[in-house]
Amino acid sequence: MIADTFTMSLRSAPEHNPPAATDEQLARRVQCGHTADLALLVERHHSPLLGFLYRLTGGDRALAEDLTQEAFLRALRSIRQYQASRPFKPWLYAIAVNVARDHFKRAETRHAVMLTDDELLALPDPIDLDEAIEIDGLRLAAAIMSLPVHQREAILLRYDRDLSLAEIAAVLSIPIGTVKSRLSLGLRQLRQQLKDDAV
């Protein structure tokens, strides 16, 4: 079932040799209508973006797929507004974050969603994973979902997507100081949540 469509990994996408053109150069060419460069951009960001949205939605794979496609579509529709002098990755993730926020608004699932035991059991089955890691993964997913969405976004962008503080500030349109405080508070809350779960 899952193995048909996905392979699961402890890390997100496998590392590829860096292609010659930067994201910004590719985006500029997409603005001129080059479909081949669009394919390169998608190939480069599909897996990381899916992973980010998968974690942001608490491990809902189908939802993450839908949001990923929607994020790419929105990015493509707004490609004319993209300024090649600015980094592409924060621009793309800002769109993805907005797509996810729109979904949370629609689903009224924002802020402090605590997963019940049933919901935890309903989380997608990670395959080929050690049982202990699997349980840790589920606990962590639940703990992340218990965070307010603005902290969840900052933490995942920082520790999952490896964005710099400045890039996160650009994605979320907030000052760097606010990014730091969200990260610090979020991590503390996450630690406390996991400690409580363990007890």
Binding site: P14, T35, V42, R55, L73, L76, G137, L140
Partner: peptide, 27 residues
């Protein structure tokens, strides 16, 4: 733990399908 969280990796076919859908919507 955050850095090691499992996540799905799309297959090449899924990425191709996404590229095709986006290409059709190319402005």
């Amino acid at each position: 733990q955050l850095a090691a969280m499992p996540a799905p990796i799309p297959t090449a076919q899924q990425t191709d399908r996404l590229v095709q859908a986006l290409t059709a919507a190319m402005p």
